Computed example of a mutant assay.
Amino acid sequence: MIGHFISRALDAIDALIDALSAVALILVTAIVFLNAVGRYFLSFNVMGAEEASRLLMIYLCFFGAYTLLRRGGHVSVDVVTLLASPQVVRVMRGLVGVVIVLVMGFLAKASWDLVAFSAGTGQMSTTLPVPRYLFFLPAAIGATLSTIAGIEIVIRAIANTLRPLPNAAMAEAEAASADTGRPAEDRKG
C-alpha cells in the first residue's frame, strides 16, 4: 500500500519534470537562437545567455537522468535479460537498484554538501544575478530523486512488481512499420 503511494507520488513528480523539461528545452532553444541572431546579425550579445542556457541544460540533464531511470530508458546491455529467466532478471534488476541507491546516495550527499557550502559563501553567478548554488542544486535534487527511484526498484524487485523494461526490438519493428506503412509482421521475407 505504501509502495503504491510512493510510486504514484513519483509518477506525479515525473509528470511535473516532463512539463518543466519541455519548457526548459524551449527556453534553451530560444535563448541560444536569439543570442546567435543578435551576435551575428544585429551586433549585440545577450548578457548571461550562455550561462542561462548552461544552467537550464544542467537541470535538464540531472532531472532527465532521474525520469529515464524510472522508465528504464537508460542505455543497457539487454542481451542478458533476453536470455535469462524472469527470476534471474528480477534479481539482476534488484541488484542494479542497490547499486543505484549506493552511487546516487553518495552523489546526493556530496551534492547537498556542495549546495550548502556554496549557499553559505553567498557566491553569485558570473553574469546572471542568481546565487551560485543554483548550478549545484540540480545534481543534488536529481541524485536524491534517483536514490528514491533506486529504492523503488529494490522494493519492486523484492515484491515482484517490477515494471516491464522497454522492448528495443519491438520499438524498432514499430518504427520500421511506420516507415513502410505496413505492420511489421506483414513485411516478412
Rank of each mutant, 00 (worst) to 15 (best):
R156S: 12
I151E: 01
A171L: 15
G105A: 09
G150R: 05
P164F: 08
I141P: 00
A159I: 02
R156G: 01
A139C: 10
T121P: 02
L162H: 01
A157T: 00
I158R: 01
V101E: 03
S177L: 07
K109E: 11
T144H: 05
L134T: 13
L128Y: 03
A178K: 15
P166N: 04
M124I: 01
G150P: 09
M124Q: 10
A119G: 08
S177H: 10
F135A: 13
V103M: 09
L137D: 02
G150Y: 00
L137N: 02
T180A: 05
L102Y: 10
L134H: 06
G105L: 07
T147K: 05
T127K: 10
L145R: 00
A139R: 06
I153Q: 10
E172L: 15
D113K: 06
S111H: 05
A171K: 14
S146V: 07
F136C: 04
L162K: 00
S125C: 05
R182T: 09
I151R: 07
M170I: 12
L134R: 02
I153E: 00
R156A: 14
A159G: 03
R163K: 15
A108E: 04
P164I: 03
V130R: 01
M124A: 10
S111P: 05
S111I: 04
M170C: 06
R132Y: 13
P164D: 10
A171S: 14
A139E: 08
E152S: 13
E172R: 15
W112I: 01
I158N: 01
M170R: 15
A116L: 11
N160Q: 14
E174P: 03
I155A: 14
A169H: 11
A171G: 11
I141H: 00
A168H: 14
P131C: 06
I155S: 07
N160P: 03
Q123F: 09
T127G: 01
S177N: 11
G181P: 06
V154R: 00
Y133K: 03
T180D: 05
V130Y: 13
V154Q: 00
V103G: 04
P164K: 03
S118G: 03
K109I: 12
P129N: 12
G120V: 04
A119R: 15
